[in-house]
Structures are given as C-alpha cells and as structure tokens.
Nucleic acid binder design. Structure first.
Lengths: 231, 231
DNA sequence: AATATAAGTGTTAAATTAACACATATTTTT
DNA sequence: AAAAATATGTGTTAATTTAACACTTATATT
C-alpha cells in the first residue's frame, strides 16, 4: 500500500456482469431472462446480472451469477464487451461486462424450473429488457453469427443426438435466413465432425430421420482450427 | 440513493484503460509503449494506461489517457477486452479494459516526439511490458488479423498516398506471411476502394511506383459492409 | 556489358459455392 | 381408394473465387 498516490479511491466504481444466455429448441433460438427482484425496475425482465465481488474475477462472477439465478452450472461463458455510460444504471455508477453462453435448453430446463424467476423467450418475441441490456443482446447476436461462420457450433445448443433438420434449423435461426437443404448438409459434412447413427428420430415423421452426434474430439479440433464459411 | 441495498460500496474497484496503439512504417508493424512514470514498475515499458474517472465513460478515458501521454488526438479506438485477475496490478485491485487503435505513424510522429516518454517498437522486437500487457497485445493482434480479412484496412495506418508495395507490406506484416504480389493486387483491386493517381513515388526506385489513395466514401461503405477474404 | 533491384501485368487449374429437382415413405384429406 | 400434403434423402452442373505461376520494362550498380 505504499504506491497509492496514483491510485485514487474516489474513482472506484461498481462493476457488474450481465449474462446473455442463448438456447435452442423446436421453436428456434431463445434467450433467457430473469425477473428483476429488486428496485429499481423490480419485476421487469433483465439479463442475469450481479456485482463483481472483491474475491473473484469477472469470469467467476459471471459463473456465480448465472448459477445463483438459474441453477445452471458448468456453463462455458465468453466475455463480450464492457458498458460504461455514466447513467446506464440509474442508482449508481456501474460498469457492466457482458458474457454470453450457448446452452442446450432441454438439458437444463429441469433445474431451471425450480427457480422460476427465469424464463426463456423466443428471440424474436422477447420483451424489451431493462437498462442497456438490449444493446448487449444485439452485440451478442452479432458475435454469435460470426461464430457460426467460423467455428463449429451446435454441441452446446443441441441435444446429444439430433437430426440434420434440427442442425439446419439452428443455423437458420442464428443467421436468420433460409438455407438450402442439400448445400447445408454437404457443407457441414465436409467439416467431418459428425457421426451418423443407426437410430432414427421419429418425432417429426413416421419415416424417421437419421440421428447424428458430434465426434467430440474432431469437433474441438475444428473449433481450435476455425474456418471461413459462407452458408 | 434509495435503492442502494443491493449495491455494495465494498465491492467497488478501480477501473483502468490500456491502449494498444499500432503503427506502420517502412520497417513494418510497430507498437507504441510508454515508460511508466510511477511505482511500481517505474521506468519499465508499458501500454498507455490510466484510471477511469467518475465523470467519463471508458472510451473517453482511453482518449484522454492517450492524449495526455502522447499528445495524440482524434484517434478512433475500439474496445477489446477486460482483464480482471485479482492480482493483476500488485498495488490494488484494478480491472483494466483494453482499447486498440491503428494510426498513421508518420502523421503523428511530430507531436509524439514532444513527450518522449513514448516510443515506437518494431512489433517483433518490443520489450516485454509490465503486468498482463503482453496478453492484451496478443489479443489485439488476433483482432487486427481478423479485421484485416473482413474489413478494409490501411486508411488509418498508411500515409495518404501510398504504393501497392506499401499496402502489400502492411498486410504482410499484420498477417505475418508473404503474399503473392499479383494475387494481392488483383484481390485488393476487386474491392474497388482505391484510386490510382498520376503521381509516382520514387523513393524506392528511380522507375517509380504509382501512388494510390483510398476513395474514402467507398472505403467506409466497404467497411460497414464487410467481406470475407482469404489472402 | 553484365548484373541487380523494383514495377507492372494475365492465364490457367483447382477449389469452393450456389442453384437446382425428383423419388420415397407415410399421414391426412377427399 | 385416390389425391394431396409433409418429411426424408440424395448429386450434378455452372459460376465464382482462390492459388499458382513468369516474363518484360526501367533504372542503377558493378
């Protein structure tokens, strides 16, 4: 504590994290909001947020916040951007760092229902959240789209076994455009990260559609390597 | 100040900004460091950094810090990432948000020399900076490379008029690989953002090489639109 | 005169991307 | 029972993009 001359107590600020959680199911891309439990804006929808504590770094704070509000655990999150407008939080100066994650919605829904302050919304129909959260979400969506074209994606969002149709719909809902069935399948197969199973899924037709899963090793390798797709 | 129950004074932290300034000249890609003027690590090389003040947002802080340490003004900076390891600054808990900018080195060098605590280093020969600044720089370089392949780049780094050779060298030094002369020129010309001038530059050969400049409107449009290059 | 350095310019093969249609299985409707 | 609707599955071709590649001209240097 000898060097504090350049370090001015008065400039200390509160730092928060806000988590943008994307999920996916039959209906398309979803986003998870919580009902804010305290004033101001109590009762309104909000990203999962909370304050950074002295004993943790930002990633730890994001993990803790997500867990405490939703019960979700072991979710890999990625830091996105820091928001620092002076009045962004009307109560006191707060800087917020956004994190985002993709999760397999079905896998986690049971846990989620216990704490029902959290709720999934179809991405296109989500209510306007508080503060600058809408801005955060827009940036996250741009990031998600970029990721979809440069790294394999789906392992975190789809059930373990999935059909080509689901995979294609996932990409369509992220990129917000229709994709050609044959081209999509050919393209995705060229990545060589899928394993075709014997099993068929019969929920959407009696003929059944073959199920696939990711070859996790190849998937991770491809993730590190990256690519440059047009879809 | 009625709602402070959830807002805990004790969790306030100092927030800093650190600026990664890239430049370019005949020798290649450069990075700007300052000699740190206070303890700890006084006299060591460091990114331009300083603390966020109560009355400014992060972008403003970055602008102010850059100006006060180097005299550089009107530099567009882009936020990169926030660093929050508890002990990243040995004096006190500090979160640092990195910003990066590309500047035309020659254009600004005069101003710079006035305050000679700042110094350019060839990117490959730069000394190891303090704290986690090296990490910040690595992330900035990755970002810079990505940008080079998805958005036109050079307006901020090159002199107003430049030769194809300089442009190619810029890309080579950012991407850290040799590029084929003909392919590079064809590719870049296909963007349709360059204007070929009558003038020649004779500094590197008596034959002279034609000078080009950017068509600023087309450049900015292309920047918004983006692309997806392999070079 | 020979050699070296820089500028400038196009063609071709390979790879990737985009466009496109029909057959099969089954259920639903008429 | 026939017709229509929904879902699965599969390949070819043209267009575009990328990668590989070599010689000519101008000038200075030896």
């Amino acid at each position: 504590m000898t060097y504090l001359n350049h370090y001015n107590e008065e400039d200390k600020v509160l730092v928060a994290v806000d988590c943008i959680i994307f999920g996916f199911d039959e209906e398309g891309l979803k986003i998870l909001f919580v009902k804010r439990g305290f004033e101001p804006e109590k009762g309104k929808w909000s990203l999962m947020g909370g304050f950074l504590k002295r004993e943790e770094n930002l990633a730890e704070a994001a993990t803790r916040v997500l867990f405490s509000l939703t019960g979700l655990q072991d979710i890999y999150m990625e830091q996105l951007y820091s928001y620092s407008e002076i009045d962004r939080d009307p109560v006191t100066r707060t800087i917020s760092v956004s994190y985002f994650a993709l999760i397999n919605k079905n896998k986690y829904d049971l846990k989620l229902n216990i704490k029902n302050e959290a709720q999934w919304f179809k991405f296109s129909e989500a209510p306007l959240p508080i503060f600058d959260h809408q801005q955060m979400i827009e940036k996250a969506l741009i990031r998600l789209r970029r990721k979809a074209l440069s790294t394999p994606l789906g392992f975190e969002l789809l059930p373990e076994k999935f059909t080509m149709r689901q995979l294609k719909r996932l990409y369509e809902s992220i990129l917000n455009q229709k994709l050609d069935k044959r081209n999509f399948i050919n393209k995705f197969n060229s990545l060589d990260i899928l394993v075709k199973l014997e099993e068929k899924d019969k929920t959407s037709s009696k003929k059944g559609a073959f199920l696939y899963k990711f070859d996790e090793k190849k998937y991770q390798l491809k993730k590190e390597e990256g690519f440059n797709f047009k879809l």
